[in-house]
Structures are given as C-alpha cells and as structure tokens.
Simulated scan of single mutants.
Amino acid sequence: MNGYLLAGGVLALAVSAIHIIAGHFDPVRPLLTSSMADVPKRTMHAVWHMVSVDLVATALTLLALAWWEPTGTALVAALTAARYAAYAVVFFVIATRVPGRASVFSLPQWILLAPIAILAGLGA
C-alpha cells in the first residue's frame, strides 16, 4: 500500500466532491442563468462536467494505484502529479490577474490542487 497515493486519492475525492457540490451553486448556477449566448454557455457547462469526470477519474486512479501498485504505478502517478501541478499553476496565475491585495486567494482552488500534486509526486 502506497500511503502517499492513498492520501492523494482521498484528498482528490474530497476535492471532487467540493467541485461537484459547491461548483453547482457558485459558478454553474449563475452561468446557466446568465445572459451569455446559448452555445458558449452550454460549452462552459459541458466543460465543467468534463472537469468533474476528470477529477473523479484521477481520484479513483490514485486510490487504485495506492492499493494494488501495478506495473506502471510510478509513471501514472508522476503524470497525475504533473496534471494536478499544472491545474494548480493555472488557477494561481489566473488568480494573480484579479485586482486586489489578496488576489491569489480569490481563486483558492490551487491550494487544494497543489497538495494532490505533491502527494502523487511523492508516491510516484
């Protein structure tokens, strides 16, 4: 049993739940009631669901790797770590573009994504 991957998988499941539950109320509901044109609105809605699928799938992947440690675990864990690190960087960089003193905390998703990248990387 790989403890780092187990911890990363559990945290990734929690992040998935936060994304699905809180995301429905914060960005998705206002998006769907906005005056944005229908095609971009539906595209953004679909992308939100695609991210939901990706978050759950990678959480389950980390848990499976932790439990069974099959051949290729190090590679898959390293690629998952890189993906979560990239997600964290994207949120951090975009947050720095928000005006105000605490702009990096205006989009705090990077705070949840970075530890998953670190745990997956340590478990690789």
Rank of each mutant, 00 (worst) to 15 (best):
N2C: 02
N2I: 00
N2V: 00
Y4D: 14
Y4A: 15
Y4H: 15
L5P: 03
L6G: 01
G8I: 00
G8Y: 00
G8F: 00
G9E: 01
G9Q: 00
G9F: 00
V10W: 05
V10K: 04
L11P: 02
L11W: 02
A12L: 01
L13K: 01
V15E: 09
S16I: 02
S16C: 12
A17V: 12
A17G: 11
H19Q: 12
H19R: 03
I20Y: 04
I21D: 07
I21T: 08
A22W: 05
A22S: 12
A22G: 12
A22H: 06
G23L: 07
H24L: 03
D26R: 09
D26L: 12
P27S: 05
P27I: 00
V28P: 01
L32H: 00
S34N: 08
S35N: 13
M36Y: 06
A37F: 04
A37P: 03
A37G: 09
D38K: 12
P40I: 04
K41R: 14
K41M: 06
R42G: 00
R42D: 11
T43Q: 07
T43N: 07
T43E: 07
T43S: 06
M44G: 04
M44K: 05
H45M: 13
H45N: 12
A46S: 11
V47G: 06
V47T: 10
W48I: 03
W48R: 04
H49L: 09
V51K: 07
S52W: 03
V53Q: 02
V53L: 08
V53H: 02
V53N: 00
V53R: 01
V53E: 03
L55N: 08
L55Y: 08
L55E: 04
V56C: 01
A57F: 01
A57N: 03
T58F: 05
A59C: 05
A59L: 04
L62R: 05
L62I: 04
L62H: 04
L63V: 08
A64N: 05
A64F: 07
L65T: 00
L65Q: 01
L65N: 03
W67T: 14
W68I: 13
W68C: 14
E69P: 00
P70A: 09
P70Y: 05
T71Q: 14
T71R: 14
G72C: 08
T73R: 07
T73E: 04
A74N: 12
A81L: 09
A82S: 14
R83Q: 13
Y84F: 15
A85R: 09
A86L: 15
A86E: 11
A86H: 07
A88E: 15
V89Y: 13
V89R: 13
V89C: 15
V90W: 03
F91A: 15
F91E: 15
F91M: 15
V93I: 15
R97K: 11
P99S: 13
A102S: 11
S103R: 09
V104P: 10
P108C: 07
P108E: 10
Q109W: 06
W110I: 09
L112H: 10
L113A: 14
P115D: 10
P115S: 11
P115C: 13
I116G: 13
A117L: 11
A117G: 14
I118W: 12
I118Q: 12
L119V: 00
L119D: 11
L119Q: 12
A120R: 06
G121E: 10
G121P: 10
G121N: 08
L122W: 09
L122Y: 10
L122C: 12
L122H: 07
G123K: 04
